[in-house]
């Protein structure tokens, strides 16, 4: 599934990476402890986290994540947004909780064949 399909089916807005919405997403990961994400986060996947500081982008870049979703409309640090633009990471902000996001993504078929 493309990120654009996800965006069209979820409440929220694309903060950065509007030009990369045709990236394919097969699986996703949910987590806020960065080392745990480092150990288990999927390549080319989507990541849901409540952390909003610049290291989120560092982790996403190192793991080659395609997209990061910040739940609950949590304000995102300006530095993080700049870094996301620089590293070409799609950053999405959504009013839904991490739990709701994960549920909706799973319903869409993301991560089912894991």
């Amino acid at each position: 599934m493309k990120i654009s399909d996800i965006v069209n089916n979820l409440p929220g807005k694309v903060v950065t990476g509007e030009e990369f919405l045709d990236r394919e997403i097969k699986t996703a990961y949910c987590g806020d402890l960065l080392s745990r994400v480092m150990a288990h986060g999927p390549q080319n996947g989507l990541w849901i986290t409540v952390q909003t500081h610049t290291n989120v982008i560092a982790v996403a870049t190192l793991l080659e994540m395609a997209c990061v979703i910040i739940p609950e409309d949590i304000p995102i640090d300006e530095n993080t947004i700049e870094k996301a633009v620089e590293e070409e990471i799609v950053l999405i902000s959504s009013p839904l909780s991490a739990f709701q996001l994960a549920g909706k993504l799973y319903e869409m078929g993301i991560g089912r064949d894991q």
Partner: peptide
């Protein structure tokens, strides 16, 4: 900040 999971060295 989400560090300190005790997984760095492992």
């Amino acid at each position: 900040l989400g560090f300190g999971a005790g997984m760095g060295l492992p």
